[in-house]
Write a protein that binds this DNA or RNA. Structure first.
Length: 803
RNA sequence: GCCCGGGUGGCGGAAUUGGUAGACGCGCAGGACUUAAAAUCCUGUACUAGCAAUAGUGUGCGGGUUCGAUUCCCGCCCCGGGCACCA
């Protein structure tokens, strides 16, 4: 008789049953404790799901199933982040409207996702490119606009003169357009921003979050908080006040020059009509081009030019010549920096252009101090350094004097204590078609007006759109879309033709799942209060500084609570590589799960991925071991379906089962699915020798259920159950039974293992040593000298020290 | 350059409040069943020596602490990821 497990048929059978019985439909109002198990939603490309998708969704689903069996009402939704460039590029190439290709891809992807055997509640699905979704994305924009967090300003974009369009950073390769190869140039455009920088301080607070340390550190560094002062100063002969940020204000007496960023708008004004104007502007152009082409080398291209202007030095140490320096970052601080001898870059710059330097601190060691004062090298970042100047702080330690110096410069009015961040405001407008239109209207009379919320959504037109870029956003080519009435005065007005960054769609979707069909509001606050924060959010670490930061920001704004957090526990799945490289279409190394799933079934494939190693670490793909899991699955099935198994040792079976329940629980809680699978294998090996009763079979069917849902259902049914194993209660264990009564421990002499004894788990010292000394091999080594120390750690080790 | 991870058999990996390193699986070798093969089952498998008992070596490298170190400390090397002129 062929008793082997027929995975394919069984899996289809259960997927149909689950579907029909609506097993995974979630009642959001249920009284059961809630559990929001969220996984980052995918972009619906037309490609098949690859191993990476499975590695993400399979274990995430196993986790949800485990929580469900532990009595939680688990919400496990799925949706599609469907706006974005690939569909638009496809449209440009083929003329197929993104609406069509996207709808097709979504349909295809739902089918594939279902084949994994996940418990998604498809009734709650969201699709960000559908009007019923992006209507509310627009609504979110208007909320931010209302709160004064959305504004417009000029900002540079990557412009491809060949394609006549704006390029995303990743479309620029070595300064050239990735498609046509034209040299990309900077172009200033008036664009929309969100004031995420207003929330910098709140976003730094990770105290309520159970996130990987690495991710929190990445966000912290990204936000880049820095304490210091803004020097208050003016440019000589001009009525222009300028600030300069300084995180090391102790240098104030050391400042001998100042530098300004080449891109700074003041530059042209400062040199206008002077004899150096031409040279300066040429220099500025040169640097700008280099920076835009991403060809800027920090070391090699550190250069500058004197503006001919001076900063009215407020420190009484003489005026500071103002130079343009290529290394100054425009977007940080004010784009102007006061320079001193105690900064590596400033030091090198001054040496290069023969600008005088004046050290004000030195090491305690007099020989080194002399070198520093003679400018032999740049000395910095040492809090133990001794101040040499000015008189007021002379002799004090540099690190310690800092706060008094800040106090002093504030009193003198030459500086203001301040905190500065690297985090820049979020640029949300895109000169693209396939995105949510920005709901704003430009009226010549009334200015920029928000679209009234009752008029949402601003529908993205399908007909008459020229996807091919012609120098303007594609929507500008649709007069029907552009021409509208001013909501304020009723006169002729024009719509905003830019669309929203897709990160905006994904920064609030977890709220929409809770009320996907709601026609009157973006999200149901009662449901949000009940279901948020998301209990576990699973997704790739590449989103640490973009999506995860944006979502936290938007959440705080929408909740009107700067402390609100959307995602409580965050888990990053590891990356699956192929021959050490990230899988990608262009490299042609994408591994498809299809042939494996067709051969072994989705349970085996899922378990194999989990068995490969720790979930958070990923690994290099190899199909070498999948037969091991297939064998295990067969063995498992045979064990369950064999009715003639005799139990040899009932006590041992009981203890082994309780130990197993404990291990599986602990492993799954830590998302170490690999060791959970190993534990089940060990049990099957044990049961094949010792036998297992029906009660035991039921337990292992439950334990394997999160990892191999179809197999578990089939076993569960075979064992006489009429309802789903996922409606059964997760087995519990008795801690007293989950340990062995005896243990095998090693016996060491001088740290080397010389024997092994089996004794009762909590045997006393005498018993243990007696047993140890009954070992011939141990005695041999003990006889080599005097026993000076005896060590006994119950359940772990016996040790003797012999001299 | 700076900040995180990580380095364990032929391979994927297991084990860390310091306590028998290598669970589990793959692969390999031998055996059983079979006319044969596949499938399945059993046995062995870190390396070196030995028939074996056993001994020596062994968790990237070099030191240290300890009765005992994959685990703790110091100094390096290599791999992966992130940031990268942030004054």
């Amino acid at each position: 008789m062929d008793s082997s497990y027929k995975a394919i048929g069984v899996e289809q059978k259960w997927q149909k049953k689950w579907d029909k019985s609506k097993l995974y439909k979630v009642d959001l109002k249920s009284k059961k404790p809630k559990y929001y198990n969220l996984v980052m939603f995918p972009y619906p490309s037309g490609d098949k799901l690859h191993v990476g998708h499975w590695y993400n969704y399979g274990p995430a689903d196993s986790w949800g199933r485990y929580k469900r069996m532990n009595g939680f009402n688990v919400l496990e939704p799925m949706g599609f982040d469907s706006f974005g460039l690939p569909a638009e590029n496809y449209a440009i190439k083929t003329g197929v409207p993104p609406q069509e290709s996207t709808a097709r891809n979504v349909k295809y992807m739902i089918k594939q996702l279902s084949a994994i055997g996940t418990m998604y509640d498809w009734e709650k699905m969201v699709n960000t490119s559908e009007p019923e979704y992006y209507k509310w994305t627009q609504w979110v924009f208007l909320e931010l606009y209302k709160k004064g967090l959305a504004y417009k300003k000029e900002a540079p974009v990557n412009w491809c003169p060949g394609c006549m369009t704006v390029l995303a950073n990743e479309q620029v390769q070595e300064g050239k357009c990735e498609r046509c190869g034209s040299l990309v140039t900077p172009k200033n455009l008036n664009q929309w921003f969100f004031k995420i920088s207003n929330y910098a301080e709140n976003l730094l607070d990770h105290s309520k979050l159970d996130w990987p340390e690495k991710t929190k550190v990445m966000q912290t560094n990204w936000i880049g908080r820095s304490e210091g002062v803004f020097w208050q100063q003016k440019i000589k002969d001009f009525d222009i006040k300028i600030e300069a940020f300084d995180s090391v204000p102790q240098t104030y007496m050391a400042q001998t020059f100042a530098v300004i960023a080449p891109e700074h708008p003041l530059v042209a004004k400062l040199v206008k009509g002077t004899k150096q104007e031409k040279a300066v502007m040429a220099f500025v152009e040169k640097v700008k081009k280099k920076k835009m082409a991403n060809k800027f080398d920090v070391e090699a291209d550190s250069e500058g030019i004197f503006t001919g202007r001076y900063i009215d030095n407020p420190f009484g140490t003489g005026d500071l010549p103002l130079w343009i320096a290529s290394f100054v970052v425009m977007g940080y601080g004010s784009g102007i920096v006061n320079c001193s001898a105690h900064d590596e870059r400033d030091f090198a710059f001054a040496k290069k252009y023969n600008i005088p330097l004046k050290p004000v601190m030195a090491p305690a060691d007099p020989v080194e101090a002399k070198k520093v004062m003679n400018l032999e090298y740049c000395y910095h970042h040492d809090p133990e350094a001794i101040m040499q100047l000015p008189e007021k702080f002379k002799g004090r330690k540099w690190g310690e004097a800092r706060k008094d110096i800040i106090k002093y410069v504030e009193e003198k009015g030459i500086g203001k204590a301040a905190v500065n961040y690297k985090l820049k405001d979020w640029l949300i407008s895109r000169q693209r078609y396939w995105g949510a239109p920005i709901p704003m209207i430009n009226c010549k009379k009334c200015g920029m007006q928000p679209v009234p919320k009752k008029d949402l959504p601003v529908i993205l037109p399908i007909k008459g759109v020229d996807y091919k870029p012609k120098g303007k956003a594609p929507l500008a080519s649709v007069p029907k879309f552009v021409n509208t009435k001013c909501p304020k005065c009723g006169g002729k007005a024009e719509r905003e033709v830019d669309t929203l960054d897709t990160f905006m769609c994904s920064s609030w979707y977890y709220l929409r799942y809770l009320s996907a069909k709601d026609k009157v509001k973006a999200f149901d606050m009662a449901a949000v209060k009940k279901w948020l924060p998301v209990d576990t959010y699973i997704g790739g670490p590449e989103h640490a500084c973009m999506h995860l930061l944006y979502a936290r920001f938007i959440h705080k704004v929408l909740m009107d609570d700067k402390k609100a957090e959307p995602f409580k526990r965050l888990v990053h799945q590891g990356l699956i590589t192929k021959d050490g490289a990230k899988m990608s279409k262009s490299k042609g190394n994408v591994v498809s799960p299809d042939e494996f799933v067709a051969k072994y079934g989705s349970d085996v494939f899922r378990m194999y991925l989990m068995f490969m190693g720790p979930f958070t670490e990923g690994g290099d793909w190899s199909d070498k071991g999948i037969t091991g899991i297939a064998r295990f699955t067969d063995r498992f099935w045979r064990l369950i379906s064999d009715e003639n198994v005799k139990v040899e040792d009932a006590v041992a079976l009981k203890r082994t089962l309780h130990k197993l329940i404990k291990r599986i629980k602990e492993d799954i809680e830590k998302m170490q699915f690999n060791t959970a699978v190993a534990a089940l294998m060990e049990f099957v090996n044990f049961a094949n020798k010792n036998g297992v009763d029906k009660a035991g079979k039921k337990i292992i069917a439950q334990l394997i259920a999160p990892l191999a849902p179809h197999l578990a259902e089939e076993c569960w049914e075979l064992l006489g159950n009429k309802t789903s194993v996922f409606d059964s209660k997760w087995p519990t264990y008795d801690p007293k039974l989950a340990v062995d009564s005896t243990v095998r421990i090693g016996v060491q002499v001088n740290g080397k293992v010389r024997g092994e004894i089996e004794i009762s788990k909590d045997a006393n010292k005498e018993e243990a040593f007696k047993s140890a000394k009954s070992q011939e091999n141990v005695l041999k080594y003990l006889a080599q000298g005097q026993v000076v120390k005896e060590i006994y750690v119950p359940g772990k080790i016996i040790g003797f020290v012999v001299k």
